[in-house]
Design a protein around this nucleic acid. Sequence first.
RNA 1: UGGGGCGUAGCCAAGUGGUAAGGCAGCGGAUUUUGAUUCCGCCAUCCCCUGGUUCGAAUCCAGGCGCCCCAGCCA
Length: 569
Amino acid sequence: MSIGEGSTGATAGGEAPEEAPGRDFIRDIVAADLQAKRHAGVVTRFPPEPNGYLHIGHAKSIALNFGIAEEFGGRCHLRFDDTNPTREEQEYIDAIERDVRWLGFDWGRHLYYASDYFERLYEWAELLIKAGKAYVDDQSPDEMRIARGTLTEPGRNSPFRDRSVDENLELFRRMKAGEFPNGARVLRAKIDMASGNINLRDPVLYRILHAPHPRTGTAWSIYPSYDYAHGQSDAIEGITHSVCTLEFEDHRPLYDWFLENLPVPSRPRQYEFARLNLTYAVLSKRVLTQLVRDGHVNGWDDPRMPTLAGLRRRGVPPAALRDFVKRIGVAKANSVVDANVLDFSIREVLNKSALRRMAVLRPLKVVIENYPEGQSEELEAVNHPDDPGAGTRKIRFGRELFIEHEDFMENPPKKFFRLSPGNEVRLRYAYFITCREAVKNATGEVVELRCTYDPATKGGNAPDGRKVKATMHWVSAADSLPAEIRIYNPLFMSAAPDAGNFAADLNPQSLEVLANARVEPALATAKPEEPVQFERQGYFSLDPDSRPDRLVFNRTVGLRDTFAKVVGK
RNA sequence: UGGGGCGUAGCCAAGUGGUAAGGCAGCGGAUUUUGAUUCCGCCAUCCCCUGGUUCGAAUCCAGGCGCCCCAGCCA
Protein backbone atom coordinates (compact mmCIF):
# COMPACT_ATOMS: atom_id res chain seq x y z
CA MET A 1 0.00 0.00 0.00
CA SER A 2 1.40 3.28 -1.03
CA ILE A 3 1.28 6.30 1.14
CA GLY A 4 -1.24 8.79 0.08
CA GLU A 5 -4.00 6.66 -1.38
CA GLY A 6 -7.24 6.76 0.39
CA SER A 7 -6.80 10.08 2.07
CA THR A 8 -8.88 12.88 0.83
CA GLY A 9 -9.58 16.33 1.89
CA ALA A 10 -11.87 18.19 4.14
CA THR A 11 -14.11 19.74 1.60
CA ALA A 12 -17.51 18.30 2.29
CA GLY A 13 -20.55 20.48 2.09
CA GLY A 14 -19.41 22.84 -0.61
CA GLU A 15 -18.95 25.72 1.79
CA ALA A 16 -16.41 28.46 1.40
CA PRO A 17 -12.97 27.14 0.54
CA GLU A 18 -10.68 26.62 3.49
CA GLU A 19 -7.24 28.13 3.25
CA ALA A 20 -4.00 26.72 4.49
CA PRO A 21 -4.04 25.37 8.02
CA GLY A 22 -1.85 26.88 10.68
CA ARG A 23 1.36 25.45 11.97
CA ASP A 24 1.76 23.76 15.29
CA PHE A 25 4.47 21.80 17.04
CA ILE A 26 3.24 18.46 15.72
CA ARG A 27 3.13 19.60 12.12
CA ASP A 28 6.60 21.02 12.66
CA ILE A 29 7.82 17.62 13.79
CA VAL A 30 6.22 15.89 10.83
CA ALA A 31 7.71 18.44 8.44
CA ALA A 32 11.16 18.01 9.99
CA ASP A 33 10.93 14.20 9.84
CA LEU A 34 9.97 14.32 6.20
CA GLN A 35 12.69 16.84 5.50
CA ALA A 36 15.24 14.57 7.16
CA LYS A 37 13.82 11.63 5.18
CA ARG A 38 13.15 9.65 8.32
CA HIS A 39 10.01 8.34 6.65
CA ALA A 40 8.92 7.75 3.09
CA GLY A 41 5.70 9.54 3.91
CA VAL A 42 3.45 10.33 6.79
CA VAL A 43 0.85 7.92 8.13
CA THR A 44 -1.39 8.89 11.02
CA ARG A 45 -4.40 7.33 12.61
CA PHE A 46 -7.51 8.30 14.53
CA PRO A 47 -8.05 5.55 17.14
CA PRO A 48 -11.43 5.85 18.88
CA GLU A 49 -12.68 3.29 21.35
CA PRO A 50 -16.23 2.39 20.30
CA ASN A 51 -17.73 2.93 23.72
CA GLY A 52 -19.57 6.18 23.09
CA TYR A 53 -20.24 8.87 20.52
CA LEU A 54 -17.64 11.26 19.18
CA HIS A 55 -17.71 14.79 20.55
CA ILE A 56 -16.18 18.09 19.54
CA GLY A 57 -12.98 17.21 21.38
CA HIS A 58 -12.58 14.30 19.00
CA ALA A 59 -13.12 16.70 16.11
CA LYS A 60 -9.88 18.39 17.13
CA SER A 61 -8.04 15.07 17.02
CA ILE A 62 -9.69 13.96 13.79
CA ALA A 63 -8.87 17.23 12.07
CA LEU A 64 -5.31 17.04 13.34
CA ASN A 65 -4.67 13.48 12.21
CA PHE A 66 -6.52 13.58 8.91
CA GLY A 67 -5.36 17.14 8.33
CA ILE A 68 -1.69 16.24 8.71
CA ALA A 69 -2.06 13.27 6.38
CA GLU A 70 -3.72 15.43 3.79
CA GLU A 71 -1.31 18.34 4.02
CA PHE A 72 1.77 16.16 3.81
CA GLY A 73 0.46 13.83 1.14
CA GLY A 74 0.12 10.87 3.45
CA ARG A 75 -2.82 8.93 4.74
CA CYS A 76 -4.81 8.59 7.92
CA HIS A 77 -6.30 5.35 9.18
CA LEU A 78 -9.49 4.98 11.12
CA ARG A 79 -8.72 2.33 13.70
CA PHE A 80 -11.14 1.19 16.35
CA ASP A 81 -9.39 0.55 19.62
CA ASP A 82 -11.63 -2.36 20.51
CA THR A 83 -9.70 -4.15 23.21
CA ASN A 84 -12.36 -4.07 25.90
CA PRO A 85 -15.50 -5.97 24.84
CA THR A 86 -17.23 -5.22 28.14
CA ARG A 87 -17.97 -1.67 27.09
CA GLU A 88 -17.81 -1.55 23.33
CA GLU A 89 -20.75 -1.85 20.96
CA GLN A 90 -21.44 -2.04 17.24
CA GLU A 91 -23.79 0.94 17.53
CA TYR A 92 -20.84 3.09 18.50
CA ILE A 93 -18.71 1.77 15.66
CA ASP A 94 -21.42 2.75 13.19
CA ALA A 95 -21.95 6.16 14.78
CA ILE A 96 -18.23 6.93 14.78
CA GLU A 97 -17.85 6.11 11.09
CA ARG A 98 -20.86 8.23 10.26
CA ASP A 99 -19.57 11.18 12.27
CA VAL A 100 -16.03 11.13 10.91
CA ARG A 101 -17.41 11.08 7.37
CA TRP A 102 -19.82 13.86 8.17
CA LEU A 103 -16.98 15.95 9.53
CA GLY A 104 -15.53 15.68 6.06
CA PHE A 105 -12.78 13.10 6.31
CA ASP A 106 -12.19 9.89 4.47
CA TRP A 107 -10.04 6.97 5.48
CA GLY A 108 -10.41 5.31 2.11
CA ARG A 109 -9.85 1.60 2.50
CA HIS A 110 -7.84 2.08 5.67
CA LEU A 111 -10.40 0.98 8.18
CA TYR A 112 -8.87 -1.18 10.90
CA TYR A 113 -9.60 -2.64 14.27
CA ALA A 114 -7.13 -3.42 17.02
CA SER A 115 -8.96 -6.75 17.13
CA ASP A 116 -7.63 -7.45 13.63
CA TYR A 117 -4.29 -7.91 15.37
CA PHE A 118 -5.32 -10.11 18.29
CA GLU A 119 -3.57 -13.15 16.84
CA ARG A 120 -0.29 -11.35 16.19
CA LEU A 121 -0.43 -9.59 19.53
CA TYR A 122 -0.86 -12.95 21.20
CA GLU A 123 2.14 -14.41 19.40
CA TRP A 124 4.24 -11.47 20.42
CA ALA A 125 3.16 -11.94 24.02
CA GLU A 126 4.51 -15.49 23.87
CA LEU A 127 7.73 -14.07 22.54
CA LEU A 128 8.01 -11.77 25.53
CA ILE A 129 7.39 -14.73 27.83
CA LYS A 130 10.06 -16.78 26.09
CA ALA A 131 12.47 -13.88 26.44
CA GLY A 132 11.75 -13.73 30.14
CA LYS A 133 10.14 -10.32 29.74
CA ALA A 134 6.60 -11.23 30.72
CA TYR A 135 5.02 -13.45 33.32
CA VAL A 136 1.66 -14.69 34.48
CA ASP A 137 0.63 -13.21 37.79
CA ASP A 138 -1.90 -14.95 40.04
CA GLN A 139 -2.34 -12.05 42.41
CA SER A 140 -5.82 -10.67 42.85
CA PRO A 141 -6.52 -7.12 41.65
CA ASP A 142 -6.36 -5.97 45.25
CA GLU A 143 -3.05 -7.65 45.91
CA MET A 144 -1.66 -6.14 42.75
CA ARG A 145 -2.82 -2.70 43.69
CA ILE A 146 -1.19 -2.89 47.10
CA ALA A 147 2.03 -4.30 45.71
CA ARG A 148 2.19 -1.58 43.09
CA GLY A 149 3.23 0.91 45.76
CA THR A 150 2.17 4.53 45.70
CA LEU A 151 3.20 7.68 43.93
CA THR A 152 6.04 8.16 46.38
CA GLU A 153 6.85 4.59 47.37
CA PRO A 154 8.20 1.88 45.07
CA GLY A 155 6.21 -1.27 44.45
CA ARG A 156 7.16 -4.80 45.42
CA ASN A 157 7.81 -7.67 43.07
CA SER A 158 5.02 -10.16 42.68
CA PRO A 159 5.67 -13.57 44.26
CA PHE A 160 4.92 -15.00 40.81
CA ARG A 161 7.41 -12.78 39.02
CA ASP A 162 10.09 -15.45 38.70
CA ARG A 163 8.07 -18.30 37.30
CA SER A 164 9.83 -20.33 34.68
CA VAL A 165 9.30 -19.63 31.03
CA ASP A 166 7.62 -23.01 30.63
CA GLU A 167 5.20 -22.42 33.45
CA ASN A 168 4.38 -18.94 32.17
CA LEU A 169 3.81 -20.27 28.69
CA GLU A 170 1.57 -23.06 29.90
CA LEU A 171 -0.46 -20.77 32.13
CA PHE A 172 -0.80 -18.12 29.42
CA ARG A 173 -1.98 -20.72 26.91
CA ARG A 174 -4.51 -21.97 29.40
CA MET A 175 -5.69 -18.40 30.00
CA LYS A 176 -6.21 -18.14 26.28
CA ALA A 177 -8.03 -21.47 26.25
CA GLY A 178 -10.51 -20.07 28.72
CA GLU A 179 -9.60 -22.35 31.57
CA PHE A 180 -9.69 -19.66 34.23
CA PRO A 181 -12.40 -17.30 35.43
CA ASN A 182 -12.31 -13.54 34.94
CA GLY A 183 -9.70 -11.91 37.10
CA ALA A 184 -7.91 -15.10 38.06
CA ARG A 185 -4.63 -14.21 36.38
CA VAL A 186 -3.06 -11.65 34.13
CA LEU A 187 -0.03 -11.52 31.92
CA ARG A 188 2.37 -8.80 32.99
CA ALA A 189 5.47 -7.28 31.47
CA LYS A 190 8.55 -7.67 33.64
CA ILE A 191 9.95 -4.17 33.75
CA ASP A 192 10.60 -2.38 37.04
CA MET A 193 8.40 -2.36 40.12
CA ALA A 194 10.42 0.50 41.56
CA SER A 195 10.08 2.84 38.61
CA GLY A 196 8.99 6.38 39.35
CA ASN A 197 6.73 5.96 36.36
CA ILE A 198 3.94 3.76 37.61
CA ASN A 199 3.16 2.61 34.08
CA LEU A 200 6.45 0.75 34.10
CA ARG A 201 5.70 -1.19 37.31
CA ASP A 202 5.02 -4.44 35.49
CA PRO A 203 1.98 -3.31 33.49
CA VAL A 204 -0.79 -5.74 32.59
CA LEU A 205 -0.65 -6.99 29.01
CA TYR A 206 -3.58 -9.40 29.06
CA ARG A 207 -6.56 -9.91 31.30
CA ILE A 208 -9.12 -12.70 31.30
CA LEU A 209 -12.46 -11.48 30.02
CA HIS A 210 -15.13 -14.00 29.19
CA ALA A 211 -17.12 -11.53 27.15
CA PRO A 212 -18.35 -11.63 23.57
CA HIS A 213 -16.59 -9.13 21.34
CA PRO A 214 -18.48 -7.18 18.64
CA ARG A 215 -16.00 -8.40 16.03
CA THR A 216 -14.32 -11.56 17.27
CA GLY A 217 -17.32 -13.03 19.04
CA THR A 218 -16.34 -15.63 21.59
CA ALA A 219 -13.02 -16.52 19.99
CA TRP A 220 -11.05 -14.95 22.82
CA SER A 221 -11.25 -15.15 26.55
CA ILE A 222 -8.23 -12.93 27.08
CA TYR A 223 -7.93 -9.40 25.75
CA PRO A 224 -4.89 -7.14 25.42
CA SER A 225 -4.67 -3.91 27.37
CA TYR A 226 -4.53 -0.54 25.67
CA ASP A 227 -0.83 -0.18 26.38
CA TYR A 228 0.02 -3.53 24.93
CA ALA A 229 -2.17 -3.12 21.86
CA HIS A 230 -1.75 0.44 20.81
CA GLY A 231 1.87 0.83 19.82
CA GLN A 232 2.03 -2.54 18.14
CA SER A 233 -1.11 -1.76 16.17
CA ASP A 234 0.56 1.46 15.07
CA ALA A 235 3.68 -0.47 14.06
CA ILE A 236 1.69 -3.06 12.12
CA GLU A 237 -0.06 -0.34 10.15
CA GLY A 238 3.12 1.59 9.51
CA ILE A 239 1.94 4.62 11.44
CA THR A 240 4.73 7.17 11.51
CA HIS A 241 3.29 9.70 13.94
CA SER A 242 0.98 8.44 16.64
CA VAL A 243 -0.74 11.49 18.02
CA CYS A 244 -2.64 11.33 21.29
CA THR A 245 -3.59 13.49 24.24
CA LEU A 246 -1.49 14.60 27.18
CA GLU A 247 -2.62 11.99 29.67
CA PHE A 248 -0.75 9.38 27.66
CA GLU A 249 2.51 11.22 27.94
CA ASP A 250 3.84 9.01 30.70
CA HIS A 251 2.75 5.93 28.82
CA ARG A 252 5.24 6.79 26.12
CA PRO A 253 8.17 4.97 27.78
CA LEU A 254 6.00 1.88 27.86
CA TYR A 255 4.89 2.42 24.27
CA ASP A 256 8.56 2.53 23.34
CA TRP A 257 9.46 -0.48 25.51
CA PHE A 258 7.13 -2.77 23.58
CA LEU A 259 8.37 -1.54 20.23
CA GLU A 260 11.95 -2.09 21.31
CA ASN A 261 11.36 -5.56 22.68
CA LEU A 262 9.22 -6.97 19.91
CA PRO A 263 9.99 -7.74 16.25
CA VAL A 264 7.65 -5.05 14.98
CA PRO A 265 7.67 -4.10 11.29
CA SER A 266 8.03 -0.36 11.82
CA ARG A 267 8.92 2.19 14.44
CA PRO A 268 6.19 4.75 15.12
CA ARG A 269 6.65 7.66 17.54
CA GLN A 270 4.06 8.99 19.91
CA TYR A 271 3.38 12.71 20.35
CA GLU A 272 0.96 14.29 22.75
CA PHE A 273 -1.16 17.45 22.61
CA ALA A 274 -3.66 19.05 24.98
CA ARG A 275 -7.22 17.90 24.61
CA LEU A 276 -9.98 20.41 23.99
CA ASN A 277 -12.02 21.88 26.82
CA LEU A 278 -14.92 24.22 26.16
CA THR A 279 -16.62 26.63 28.53
CA TYR A 280 -20.13 25.64 29.64
CA ALA A 281 -19.58 22.10 28.42
CA VAL A 282 -18.24 18.80 29.62
CA LEU A 283 -16.26 16.76 27.12
CA SER A 284 -15.96 13.49 28.92
CA LYS A 285 -17.37 10.32 27.44
CA ARG A 286 -18.18 9.13 30.92
CA VAL A 287 -20.30 12.18 31.65
CA LEU A 288 -21.88 12.28 28.21
CA THR A 289 -22.84 8.63 28.54
CA GLN A 290 -24.41 9.35 31.88
CA LEU A 291 -26.35 12.32 30.54
CA VAL A 292 -27.86 10.00 27.96
CA ARG A 293 -28.44 7.03 30.25
CA ASP A 294 -29.98 9.12 33.02
CA GLY A 295 -32.25 10.92 30.60
CA HIS A 296 -30.92 14.41 31.23
CA VAL A 297 -30.88 14.81 27.47
CA ASN A 298 -32.80 13.09 24.71
CA GLY A 299 -30.11 10.84 23.36
CA TRP A 300 -26.61 11.19 21.99
CA ASP A 301 -27.83 13.48 19.25
CA ASP A 302 -29.68 15.87 21.52
CA PRO A 303 -28.81 19.32 20.11
CA ARG A 304 -27.58 20.38 23.52
CA MET A 305 -24.91 17.71 23.48
CA PRO A 306 -21.35 18.57 22.38
CA THR A 307 -21.36 15.35 20.37
CA LEU A 308 -20.87 15.54 16.64
CA ALA A 309 -24.30 13.95 16.29
CA GLY A 310 -25.80 16.62 18.55
CA LEU A 311 -24.06 19.46 16.78
CA ARG A 312 -25.18 18.07 13.43
CA ARG A 313 -28.79 17.85 14.55
CA ARG A 314 -28.56 21.35 15.91
CA GLY A 315 -27.59 22.53 12.46
CA VAL A 316 -23.87 23.14 12.88
CA PRO A 317 -22.19 22.58 9.53
CA PRO A 318 -19.06 20.42 9.48
CA ALA A 319 -17.11 23.30 7.92
CA ALA A 320 -17.77 25.36 11.05
CA LEU A 321 -16.24 22.65 13.20
CA ARG A 322 -13.21 22.48 10.94
CA ASP A 323 -12.87 26.24 11.10
CA PHE A 324 -13.18 26.11 14.87
CA VAL A 325 -10.46 23.56 15.47
CA LYS A 326 -8.15 25.39 13.12
CA ARG A 327 -8.77 28.58 15.05
CA ILE A 328 -7.95 27.16 18.47
CA GLY A 329 -4.59 25.68 17.54
CA VAL A 330 -2.73 22.68 18.88
CA ALA A 331 -0.36 22.94 21.82
CA LYS A 332 0.59 21.26 25.08
CA ALA A 333 -0.83 23.71 27.59
CA ASN A 334 -4.08 22.69 29.24
CA SER A 335 -6.68 25.19 28.18
CA VAL A 336 -10.36 25.97 28.13
CA VAL A 337 -11.60 27.49 24.92
CA ASP A 338 -14.31 30.14 25.16
CA ALA A 339 -17.54 28.81 23.63
CA ASN A 340 -17.74 32.16 21.83
CA VAL A 341 -15.07 30.93 19.47
CA LEU A 342 -17.29 28.04 18.42
CA ASP A 343 -20.28 30.33 17.96
CA PHE A 344 -18.13 32.66 15.90
CA SER A 345 -17.05 29.84 13.60
CA ILE A 346 -20.62 28.69 13.19
CA ARG A 347 -21.82 32.18 12.29
CA GLU A 348 -18.83 32.67 10.03
CA VAL A 349 -19.78 29.67 7.90
CA LEU A 350 -23.53 30.09 8.13
CA ASN A 351 -23.52 33.78 7.27
CA LYS A 352 -22.15 32.82 3.89
CA SER A 353 -24.21 29.73 3.27
CA ALA A 354 -27.61 30.14 4.91
CA LEU A 355 -30.49 31.47 2.84
CA ARG A 356 -32.48 34.20 4.54
CA ARG A 357 -36.08 33.72 5.56
CA MET A 358 -38.51 35.44 7.87
CA ALA A 359 -39.98 33.77 10.91
CA VAL A 360 -41.68 35.21 13.94
CA LEU A 361 -40.79 33.38 17.10
CA ARG A 362 -43.26 35.04 19.49
CA PRO A 363 -46.03 36.46 17.32
CA LEU A 364 -47.86 39.69 17.99
CA LYS A 365 -50.74 40.37 15.66
CA VAL A 366 -50.71 43.56 13.64
CA VAL A 367 -53.71 44.93 11.75
CA ILE A 368 -52.98 47.52 9.07
CA GLU A 369 -56.11 49.61 9.37
CA ASN A 370 -55.78 51.45 6.10
CA TYR A 371 -54.97 48.34 4.06
CA PRO A 372 -58.07 47.14 2.21
CA GLU A 373 -59.77 44.17 3.73
CA GLY A 374 -59.60 40.97 1.72
CA GLN A 375 -56.70 42.27 -0.33
CA SER A 376 -53.11 41.03 -0.46
CA GLU A 377 -50.09 41.40 -2.70
CA GLU A 378 -46.79 39.71 -3.49
CA LEU A 379 -43.49 41.31 -2.70
CA GLU A 380 -40.04 40.21 -3.70
CA ALA A 381 -37.41 39.28 -1.13
CA VAL A 382 -33.79 38.35 -1.75
CA ASN A 383 -32.55 34.99 -0.55
CA HIS A 384 -29.09 36.22 0.35
CA PRO A 385 -28.04 39.86 0.56
CA ASP A 386 -24.41 39.14 -0.35
CA ASP A 387 -25.10 36.59 -3.04
CA PRO A 388 -27.34 37.70 -5.91
CA GLY A 389 -26.97 34.22 -7.34
CA ALA A 390 -29.10 32.88 -4.52
CA GLY A 391 -32.08 34.48 -6.22
CA THR A 392 -35.29 35.87 -4.82
CA ARG A 393 -38.64 34.64 -3.61
CA LYS A 394 -42.12 36.07 -3.28
CA ILE A 395 -43.68 36.84 0.05
CA ARG A 396 -47.28 37.84 0.63
CA PHE A 397 -48.33 41.01 2.39
CA GLY A 398 -51.83 41.62 3.70
CA ARG A 399 -53.92 43.48 6.20
CA GLU A 400 -53.12 41.13 9.06
CA LEU A 401 -49.56 40.30 9.98
CA PHE A 402 -47.45 39.00 12.80
CA ILE A 403 -44.39 40.74 14.11
CA GLU A 404 -42.03 39.77 16.88
CA HIS A 405 -43.55 40.55 20.25
CA GLU A 406 -40.29 42.00 21.54
CA ASP A 407 -40.21 44.40 18.61
CA PHE A 408 -42.95 46.43 20.26
CA MET A 409 -42.73 48.43 23.45
CA GLU A 410 -45.47 50.62 24.77
CA ASN A 411 -43.07 52.75 26.79
CA PRO A 412 -39.77 52.44 24.98
CA PRO A 413 -36.45 53.54 26.45
CA LYS A 414 -34.46 56.14 24.50
CA LYS A 415 -32.43 53.71 22.43
CA PHE A 416 -35.36 51.56 21.31
CA PHE A 417 -35.81 52.10 17.57
CA ARG A 418 -38.50 49.55 16.93
CA LEU A 419 -42.27 49.84 17.09
CA SER A 420 -43.96 51.89 19.76
CA PRO A 421 -47.09 54.07 19.77
CA GLY A 422 -46.73 56.76 17.14
CA ASN A 423 -43.41 55.44 15.85
CA GLU A 424 -42.76 54.50 12.24
CA VAL A 425 -40.63 51.52 11.16
CA ARG A 426 -40.00 49.57 8.02
CA LEU A 427 -41.33 46.07 7.49
CA ARG A 428 -38.61 44.37 5.53
CA TYR A 429 -39.27 44.26 1.76
CA ALA A 430 -42.73 45.78 2.39
CA TYR A 431 -43.83 49.16 3.71
CA PHE A 432 -43.32 51.70 6.42
CA ILE A 433 -45.91 51.29 9.11
CA THR A 434 -46.81 53.46 12.06
CA CYS A 435 -48.26 52.18 15.28
CA ARG A 436 -51.56 53.84 16.15
CA GLU A 437 -52.75 51.81 19.09
CA ALA A 438 -51.88 48.87 21.28
CA VAL A 439 -54.84 46.64 22.10
CA LYS A 440 -54.66 44.93 25.49
CA ASN A 441 -56.48 42.04 27.03
CA ALA A 442 -58.10 41.95 30.45
CA THR A 443 -54.80 41.40 32.18
CA GLY A 444 -53.17 44.32 30.46
CA GLU A 445 -51.01 42.40 28.04
CA VAL A 446 -50.62 43.83 24.58
CA VAL A 447 -52.31 41.34 22.26
CA GLU A 448 -52.68 43.30 19.03
CA LEU A 449 -51.40 46.41 17.33
CA ARG A 450 -53.44 48.72 15.16
CA CYS A 451 -51.17 50.31 12.60
CA THR A 452 -51.35 52.24 9.35
CA TYR A 453 -49.06 51.87 6.38
CA ASP A 454 -47.81 54.32 3.80
CA PRO A 455 -48.64 52.95 0.31
CA ALA A 456 -45.92 55.15 -1.16
CA THR A 457 -43.20 53.24 0.68
CA LYS A 458 -43.73 49.96 -1.14
CA GLY A 459 -40.50 48.01 -1.26
CA GLY A 460 -39.22 49.85 1.77
CA ASN A 461 -38.21 53.30 0.61
CA ALA A 462 -40.01 56.60 1.07
CA PRO A 463 -40.17 58.83 -2.02
CA ASP A 464 -39.86 61.87 0.21
CA GLY A 465 -36.58 60.55 1.54
CA ARG A 466 -37.68 60.16 5.12
CA LYS A 467 -35.85 57.57 7.12
CA VAL A 468 -36.82 55.08 9.77
CA LYS A 469 -34.39 53.72 12.31
CA ALA A 470 -35.58 50.14 12.32
CA THR A 471 -36.38 47.43 9.84
CA MET A 472 -38.37 44.56 11.21
CA HIS A 473 -39.15 41.08 10.04
CA TRP A 474 -42.74 39.97 9.78
CA VAL A 475 -44.95 37.28 8.41
CA SER A 476 -48.44 37.37 6.92
CA ALA A 477 -51.18 36.07 9.20
CA ALA A 478 -52.98 34.32 6.37
CA ASP A 479 -50.05 32.61 4.65
CA SER A 480 -47.56 31.89 7.39
CA LEU A 481 -47.12 28.38 8.70
CA PRO A 482 -47.25 27.40 12.35
CA ALA A 483 -44.02 26.02 13.70
CA GLU A 484 -42.33 24.92 16.87
CA ILE A 485 -38.96 26.45 17.51
CA ARG A 486 -36.43 25.05 19.91
CA ILE A 487 -33.93 27.40 21.45
CA TYR A 488 -30.89 25.85 23.07
CA ASN A 489 -28.95 27.33 25.92
CA PRO A 490 -25.84 25.96 27.59
CA LEU A 491 -26.42 22.56 29.18
CA PHE A 492 -24.50 23.70 32.24
CA MET A 493 -24.83 26.83 34.26
CA SER A 494 -21.21 27.36 35.15
CA ALA A 495 -18.47 28.14 32.68
CA ALA A 496 -16.35 25.35 34.13
CA PRO A 497 -18.71 22.54 35.15
CA ASP A 498 -17.40 20.05 37.67
CA ALA A 499 -17.39 16.74 35.84
CA GLY A 500 -17.48 15.00 39.18
CA ASN A 501 -20.78 16.59 40.15
CA PHE A 502 -22.25 17.72 36.89
CA ALA A 503 -25.86 16.92 37.73
CA ALA A 504 -26.08 19.79 40.21
CA ASP A 505 -24.89 22.16 37.52
CA LEU A 506 -27.38 21.26 34.81
CA ASN A 507 -29.15 24.27 33.36
CA PRO A 508 -32.92 23.84 33.76
CA GLN A 509 -33.33 26.36 30.95
CA SER A 510 -31.15 24.51 28.45
CA LEU A 511 -34.14 23.87 26.19
CA GLU A 512 -36.76 26.51 25.45
CA VAL A 513 -39.67 25.50 23.26
CA LEU A 514 -41.53 28.20 21.36
CA ALA A 515 -44.67 26.37 20.32
CA ASN A 516 -46.52 29.15 18.53
CA ALA A 517 -44.05 30.50 16.06
CA ARG A 518 -45.08 31.47 12.51
CA VAL A 519 -42.78 31.03 9.56
CA GLU A 520 -42.99 32.13 5.96
CA PRO A 521 -44.36 29.57 3.46
CA ALA A 522 -41.00 29.01 1.75
CA LEU A 523 -39.91 27.16 4.87
CA ALA A 524 -42.33 24.34 4.13
CA THR A 525 -39.60 22.67 2.08
CA ALA A 526 -36.83 23.07 4.65
CA LYS A 527 -34.68 20.02 5.32
CA PRO A 528 -32.53 18.94 8.24
CA GLU A 529 -28.89 20.04 7.98
CA GLU A 530 -29.90 22.74 5.52
CA PRO A 531 -29.09 25.99 7.25
CA VAL A 532 -31.41 28.95 7.06
CA GLN A 533 -31.19 32.34 8.68
CA PHE A 534 -34.33 33.71 10.24
CA GLU A 535 -33.58 37.38 9.71
CA ARG A 536 -32.67 39.30 12.82
CA GLN A 537 -32.92 36.10 14.88
CA GLY A 538 -30.27 33.59 14.09
CA TYR A 539 -29.47 30.45 12.17
CA PHE A 540 -31.87 27.54 12.24
CA SER A 541 -32.38 24.16 10.68
CA LEU A 542 -35.23 21.71 10.54
CA ASP A 543 -35.24 19.08 13.26
CA PRO A 544 -35.86 15.46 12.28
CA ASP A 545 -38.87 15.54 14.62
CA SER A 546 -40.53 17.87 12.13
CA ARG A 547 -43.72 16.78 10.36
CA PRO A 548 -45.33 18.39 7.30
CA ASP A 549 -48.15 19.69 9.44
CA ARG A 550 -45.90 20.57 12.32
CA LEU A 551 -42.60 22.16 11.39
CA VAL A 552 -39.93 22.02 14.05
CA PHE A 553 -36.82 24.16 13.84
CA ASN A 554 -33.71 24.15 15.99
CA ARG A 555 -31.86 27.35 16.61
CA THR A 556 -28.27 26.57 15.75
CA VAL A 557 -26.95 29.87 17.06
CA GLY A 558 -28.34 33.35 17.43
CA LEU A 559 -27.11 36.36 15.49
CA ARG A 560 -24.71 38.67 17.28
CA ASP A 561 -26.87 40.98 19.31
CA THR A 562 -25.31 44.31 20.17
CA PHE A 563 -28.71 45.74 21.01
CA ALA A 564 -28.97 43.28 23.87
CA LYS A 565 -25.79 44.83 25.25
CA VAL A 566 -27.14 48.32 24.88
CA VAL A 567 -30.19 47.33 26.85
CA GLY A 568 -27.86 45.70 29.32
CA LYS A 569 -29.24 42.22 29.62
C1' U B 1 14.38 15.00 47.47
C1' G B 2 8.16 9.68 43.17
C1' G B 3 7.61 10.30 37.79
C1' G B 4 5.81 13.17 33.59
C1' G B 5 4.06 17.83 31.57
C1' C B 6 2.71 23.01 31.34
C1' G B 7 2.99 28.45 32.74
C1' U B 8 2.89 34.87 26.87
C1' A B 9 -3.67 39.83 27.33
C1' G B 10 -10.33 38.06 29.97
C1' C B 11 -9.93 33.17 26.61
C1' C B 12 -7.00 30.49 22.81
C1' A B 13 -2.09 31.07 20.58
C1' A B 14 2.65 32.52 17.59
C1' G B 15 7.51 33.49 19.07
C1' U B 16 13.49 29.20 19.85
C1' G B 17 19.03 35.73 21.85
C1' G B 18 17.84 41.41 18.50
C1' U B 19 13.78 44.50 21.19
C1' A B 20 5.76 40.82 21.99
C1' A B 21 2.03 37.68 15.29
C1' G B 22 -2.95 36.38 14.78
C1' G B 23 -7.93 34.93 16.43
C1' C B 24 -12.15 35.15 20.04
C1' A B 25 -14.13 38.46 23.64
C1' G B 26 -14.25 43.76 24.77
C1' C B 27 -14.25 49.07 23.46
C1' G B 28 -14.79 53.21 19.84
C1' G B 29 -16.36 54.73 14.78
C1' A B 30 -18.17 54.23 9.27
C1' U B 31 -21.61 51.72 6.02
C1' U B 32 -26.30 49.06 6.31
C1' U B 33 -34.04 47.71 3.97
C1' U B 34 -31.12 42.03 9.25
C1' G B 35 -29.40 46.89 16.00
C1' A B 36 -26.64 41.04 11.31
C1' U B 37 -22.79 41.20 7.72
C1' U B 38 -18.74 44.30 5.99
C1' C B 39 -15.13 48.04 7.03
C1' C B 40 -11.72 51.03 9.99
C1' G B 41 -9.32 52.03 14.77
C1' C B 42 -8.08 50.78 20.12
C1' C B 43 -6.78 46.71 23.37
C1' A B 44 0.71 43.08 26.87
C1' U B 45 6.79 48.86 27.92
C1' C B 46 5.70 43.32 28.76
C1' C B 47 6.02 37.32 28.54
C1' C B 48 4.64 33.07 36.65
C1' C B 49 8.51 35.08 40.27
C1' U B 50 13.65 36.13 41.83
C1' G B 51 18.56 36.29 40.68
C1' G B 52 22.39 35.58 36.86
C1' U B 53 24.85 35.48 31.75
C1' U B 54 24.79 39.05 27.59
C1' C B 55 25.70 45.25 24.23
C1' G B 56 20.82 43.00 24.15
C1' A B 57 16.59 37.67 27.23
C1' A B 58 9.68 35.81 26.65
C1' U B 59 13.73 33.18 24.50
C1' C B 60 20.15 30.94 27.81
C1' C B 61 21.56 29.51 33.22
C1' A B 62 20.22 28.88 38.62
C1' G B 63 16.65 28.81 42.33
C1' G B 64 11.67 29.33 43.54
C1' C B 65 6.14 29.45 42.85
C1' G B 66 1.66 27.75 40.55
C1' C B 67 -1.40 24.40 37.68
C1' C B 68 -2.40 19.55 35.19
C1' C B 69 -1.65 14.06 34.62
C1' C B 70 -0.22 9.03 36.73
C1' A B 71 -1.27 4.34 42.09
C1' G B 72 -7.94 0.31 36.31
C1' C B 73 -7.12 -6.71 35.18
C1' C B 74 -10.37 1.56 31.35
C1' A B 75 -8.75 4.00 27.05
